[in-house]
């Protein structure tokens, strides 16, 4: 499903959405960045509580469909701008990682 559809159906919030029509084909949850790069697949929704600038680089290089920030984790404005510049979708969930993953699992 599209990132925009996931936001609507799961009740998530858009943080940056430069590519709302991007298709999500799977999901991966994790905070260790190299682990994510080793295990996440292209077009996954990547669920994390990490919020530093390296998240944007990892999302871009690993080519995930979107980053899903669990627990309403906030991002600095500078990081949001970098995400927009690199066309990275970032969405936010108020739930912990496990519940966020369960919610996403209903739709993919």
């Amino acid at each position: 499903m599209k990132v925009s559809e996931l936001i609507e159906k799961a009740g998530f919030r858009a943080v940056t959405l430069p590519d709302a029509d991007r298709e999500i084909k799977g999901a991966y949850a994790g905070d260790l960045l190299s682990w994510v790069m080793g295990r996440a697949k292209a077009d996954d929704a990547w669920i994390t509580i990490m919020s530093n600038i390296n998240v944007v680089a990892v999302a871009s290089l690993a080519d995930v469909a979107c980053v899903v920030l669990a627990e309403d984790v906030e991002l600095d404005e500078e990081i949001k701008q970098t995400a927009l510049d690199r066309e990275i979708n970032i969405i936010s969930s108020g739930m912990p990682i496990y519940e966020t993953a369960l919610e996403i699992g209903k739709f993919i």
Partner: peptide, 14 residues
């Protein structure tokens, strides 16, 4: 910062 998981070189090889 989320690095130092001991996966860098293994990922480069992968």
């Amino acid at each position: 910062l989320g690095f130092g998981a001991g996966m860098g070189l293994p990922n480069m090889k992968r």
